[in-house]
Amino acid sequence: MEYRRLGKSGLSVSEIALGNWITHGAQVDDTTAQACVHAALDAGITTFDTADVYSETRAEAILGESLKRIRRESIELCTKVFHPTGTGKNDRGLSRKHIMEACHASLRRLQTDYIDVYYAHRFDPTTSLEETFLAFSDLVRQGKVLYVGVSEWTAEQIELGAALAKEYQVPFVASQPQYSMLWRVIEAEVIPACEREGIGQIVWSPLAQGILSGKYTPDRPIPEGSRAASTAGSPFFDKLVGQWLQKEVLQVIERIKPIAQEAGLTLPQLAVAWVLQNQHVSSAIIGASNPEQIKENVKAAGVKLDTQVMQQINHLLAGVAEFDPKKTG
C-alpha cells in the first residue's frame, strides 16, 4: 500500500480506502463484512469510509464493531451527514441541530471518540452555509471532528464553503466526488477549485458502479449475483448503473481489457490505477462483497501507468465518457 497527503493538509490516507455503501448491512452478512474489514487492514488500508445513511445506520455500526479492537490512531475513520436518518423534520440536512445530533449518533455507532473526516454528504440549499460551518467549527473545537469535507458539491459551492472555513478556522480538506474512467465531470471545475483551496479528492466508484469490473459484456444478459442484477429496476440502477449498460459502452470496455492484460493488471485494477494517476486524487474508495475482491483490487496501489496506456484509454473512451461539469452532484 502507498499513502498520500489529503490535499494540503498534514493528514495521510491510504491510496485505496474501503467503503461500505450498499454492502455492510445490506448485500453482505455481518461476518463477511468483518472479514472484508480485516482483509483491508491486512492489505495496508488505513482509510475507511461510511455514512450515517448507509443501510439505515447499520453500516456505521458494523464498521465500528469491526474496528473496535484496532489501535484508533492507526486508521482514518470517515463518515457523513445530510441524508435522512429518521422520520422527524430535523432528521436531515445541514442544520446545526441535525449536524450535532447526527455526529453524536455516528460516534456511538462507530464506537469512537472522534471522526477523522466528517463530510457534508450533499449541499443543503435550505440552510445557510454560515450555520453549517459554525456547527462544524464547534465540533472541531470539541475534538469530535478533526477535518471536514464535502461530497458531490459543485465548484461554486466548494469555494463558498472554503471562504467560510477560513473565517471559522475549520480544516476543510476533502472533497468526495464520483470519479472513474467513465465519469469525469469533476475535471473541468471541481478539481481546479479544490486545488486553489488546498482540498484533496477521495473519490468514490472508481469502477463505475461495477461496470468496469469486466463482468458485463455486450449482447449477454446481466450476470446473476452482480450489482446490476441485484439493483435492476431501482432508482440506484436507473441513475447510476443503467446509464452504462449500453452496447456501445460495453463494446469500448471490451477493447480496454487487452490494455489491462498488457499492463499485467485485471480490468478492475486498471480502473483503480487509472483514477490514482490523477495527482489531485488522494485516495480511491473501493467496495467489496468478499475479502478476495479487496486482495485483488489493492494491487492497483502504487501502479504507474505509461503515458501511452493513458492515451490509449482516453482515446477509446472519448465518445462514451461523461465530462459535463453541470452533472456534478
Rank of each mutant, 00 (worst) to 15 (best):
N314L: 01
Q251N: 09
T231L: 11
T266H: 05
L240N: 09
A288M: 04
Y216Q: 09
I313W: 07
V272P: 13
R184H: 02
T307H: 06
L265F: 02
T217A: 08
T307F: 10
D219S: 12
Q243E: 08
S283H: 04
L212N: 13
R227D: 14
P291E: 08
A284N: 03
L250P: 07
L265A: 06
E195N: 13
A321C: 10
N297Q: 12
E197G: 06
E224R: 00
K304P: 01
V252P: 01
L317P: 00
K239F: 11
I285G: 04
A273K: 11
D238F: 12
L265Y: 03
G233W: 05
N290K: 02
R227E: 15
G200R: 00
P258G: 08
G287I: 01
P223R: 01
R184M: 07
T217E: 10
E322C: 13
G233L: 03
I211W: 10
S205M: 07
D219K: 11
N278K: 07
E292A: 05
G214V: 10
E248G: 05
Q178P: 15
V275Y: 08
K239G: 07
Q246V: 15
V185H: 04
Q312V: 09
Q293C: 04
R184A: 07
L240Q: 05
D306W: 09
K295W: 07
K215Y: 04
S180R: 10
D238V: 09
V281N: 07
G210L: 04
Q308F: 09
G264W: 05
I256M: 14
T217Q: 12
V203M: 02
A208V: 10
F236P: 03
A318L: 08
K247E: 11
N278F: 09
V281G: 00
I222S: 05
Q311K: 11
N290A: 01
Q277C: 08
A288I: 02
K304C: 10
G302Q: 08
E296C: 07
V185Q: 00
C194W: 13
V185M: 03
I211E: 07
L267V: 01
Y179K: 03
C194M: 12
E296M: 11
Y216S: 09
K239Y: 12
P206G: 11
G225V: 15
E187S: 00
S282V: 03
